[in-house]
C-alpha cells in the first residue's frame, strides 16, 4: 500500500511540476516571439489550456494526498481527538463518494464531447483525450480520500491524509 501510494504521488508530482514549467516556458517563448519577431505562436494558448486541466485535476489528487484543502476548521478545532477522528472518517468517506460520482458524470460529459468530435482549433487534437485527465483526477482523489479513511481507522492518531497527521503545521491554507 505504501509503495503504491509513493509511486502515484511521484508521478503526480512530476506531472504537476513539469506542466507548470512547460506553461512558463511556452508563454515566455510566445511573448519573446511576438515582441522580437512580430508573430504569435497560436498553439501556445491551446497547450497551456491543456496543461492547466492536467494541473487542476491531477493536482486535486496530489492536494488530497498532502491534506491540502481550503476548509473551515472553526468548529472542528473545538472537538476532542476522538470526535475529530470520527469527523475525518465521515468527511473523507463522503468526499470519496462524491469524487467517484463526479468521475461518472465526467465520463458522461466526455462521451458528448467525443460524439461531437470536438477538436482544438490550432493543433486539431480531439478534446476528449485531454478531458480524460478529469475523471482520472477524480478517481485518483477518491482513492486518496479512501486511503485517509483507512489510515484513520487503522492508526491511533488523527490523519488529514494518508501520510499527514492533523497538526497545525500542515493544515488548511487559504490561497488567495
Amino acid at each position: 500500500m505504501n509503495k503504491l501510494f509513493a509511486i502515484i504521488q511521484r508521478i503526480e508530482a512530476f506531472l504537476l511540476a513539469w506542466s507548470i514549467i512547460s506553461i512558463a516556458a511556452l508563454s515566455i517563448g510566445n511573448v519573446v516571439c511576438r515582441a522580437l519577431f512580430g508573430f504569435s505562436l497560436a498553439f501556445v494558448g491551446e497547450v497551456s489550456q491543456f496543461l492547466i486541466i492536467v494541473v487542476t485535476f491531477i493536482g486535486l489528487s496530489y492536494a488530497a494526498s498532502q491534506g491540502r484543502h481550503i476548509r473551515m476548521t472553526a468548529l472542528y478545532d473545538q472537538l476532542n481527538p476522538r470526535w475529530r477522528k470520527i469527523m475525518m472518517v465521515i468527511i473523507n468517506s463522503l468526499t470519496a463518494l462524491l469524487m467517484l460520482l463526479l468521475a461518472g458524470y465526467a465520463f458522461e460529459y466526455i462521451n458528448t464531447v467525443r460524439f461531437l468530435d470536438t477538436i482544438s482549433p490550432v493543433l486539431q487534437v480531439p478534446l476528449y483525450l485531454i478531458y480524460l485527465f478529469v475523471p482520472l483526477g477524480f478517481i485518483l482523489s477518491a482513492i486518496q480520500y479512501g486511503l485517509t479513511v483507512f489510515r484513520n481507522l487503522t492508526a491511533p492518531d488523527v490523519y488529514i491524509s494518508y501520510s499527514q497527521k492533523d497538526e497545525y503545521e500542515t493544515t488548511v491554507v487559504g490561497e488567495v
Binding site: Y109, T112, V113, F115, L116, T118
Partner: peptide, 10 residues
C-alpha cells in the same frame, strides 16, 4: 458558444 452547443446536445 462551445458550451452552449454541448448543452443542446445534452
Amino acid at each position: 458558444s462551445d458550451q452552449i452547443t454541448e448543452l443542446v446536445d445534452m
